[in-house]
């Protein structure tokens, strides 16, 4: 590299801009955290005193617990089913070529790009037509539609790191297709499968718009938050929000650690 076009000032400026960007992205998360421990009813500076009263108010609210129970119940089923569906689709794309594959892939990947209000309306109208609206199952069904593409993408990336000959080698050594799946493909894809479980749970955990349309009385926690927002300004939302942030950040961080580690492992194997 020559030193033409280099200036300390620009180098510093660009790095500072990265910091600024992260500041913007994480500011609301940080603010929610700080003000959830603030005693003042209306958030402003200077801060009031340290207080956990908003957490106590939230913890003693049975509605919040109902919402949380629903969210966890929905999230658990959604993550398991989406991961299974997504894995199947990723494996199909990895191994087979067939007529209409591009349509299949579009169905497997497009749903998250449809605006959630439209999905919400379509699901509400359709599910109430077949008597499945207003229940937890309605939320589960809709969330699987938008979550399985994430599971599919994550698993597909992992499978693309695998040598396709490995599976063929297993067949040649006498393994049936099922045995090759059980002993070669699944173990190889395992980190991605767990990553997909966590990511899809995070997506379901944070989704509020479709849930708001279809859930009826079985509201999930984010829908409760939406209800709160329409009602009043209350620091309790900061307490719930901090809880929501911590939960989904934990899920996403675990998933990412799983996925980056798998990449490093593969690279080491490849170098040997």
């Amino acid at each position: 590299m020559n030193n033409f076009n280099r200036s300390k000032f620009v180098e510093f400026g660009l790095r500072f801009y990265i910091l600024l960007s992260f500041g913007f992205v994480f500011a609301p998360i940080a603010a929610s955290f700080v003000f959830s421990f603030n005693s003042d009813r209306f958030p402003s500076i200077p801060l009031g005193s340290f207080s956990t009263e908003w957490y106590q108010a939230v913890a003693t609210d049975p509605l919040v617990w109902d919402g949380l129970r629903n969210t966890l119940f929905v999230g658990f089923i959604v993550s398991v089913v989406s991961t299974i569906l997504g894995f199947g689709a990723a494996y199909t794309d990895f191994r087979y070529r067939f007529f209409g594959k591009s349509v299949y892939m579009a169905l497997a990947l497009l749903p998250p790009t449809i605006p959630v209000v439209i999905m919400g309306l379509a699901m509400l109208a359709y599910l109430s037509r077949i008597n499945l609206s207003g229940q937890s199952i309605s939320v589960i069904i809709s969330h699987i539609v938008i979550c399985s593409p994430f599971a599919m993408a994550i698993t597909r990336l992992r499978l693309s790191q695998m040598d396709p000959d490995l599976e063929a080698a297993a067949w040649n050594l006498g393994a049936s297709e099922w045995a090759a799946m059980r002993y070669v493909i699944v173990p190889f894809a395992l980190p991605a499968i767990f990553g997909a479980l966590f990511i899809t749970m995070a997506v379901s955990f944070d989704e509020f718009a479709i849930s708001w349309f279809v859930s009826g009385l079985n509201e999930t926690l984010p829908v409760k938050v939406l209800g709160f927002l329409q009602g009043q300004v209350s620091p309790r939302i900061n307490a719930i929000g901090t809880f929501v942030f911590v939960t989904s950040m934990t899920l996403v961080i675990i998933a990412q650690i799983l996925l980056t580690r798998q990449m490093r492992d593969t690279n080491i194997v490849a170098k040997d």
């Binding site: 992205v25 609301p28 603010a31 209306f42 958030p43 938050v225 989904s248 950040m249 990412q256």
Partner: peptide
């Protein structure tokens, strides 16, 4: 790694938190 986190972290609550910054008596 850090940019992926907010993509999956409740947009709804993040928008609410902006109210803390932008409201008339906000930060």
């Amino acid at each position: 790694f850090m940019m992926v986190i907010p993509f999956f972290t409740s947009y709804l609550v993040r928008v609410y938190s902006w109210q803390i910054f932008l409201s008339d008596n906000g930060i």
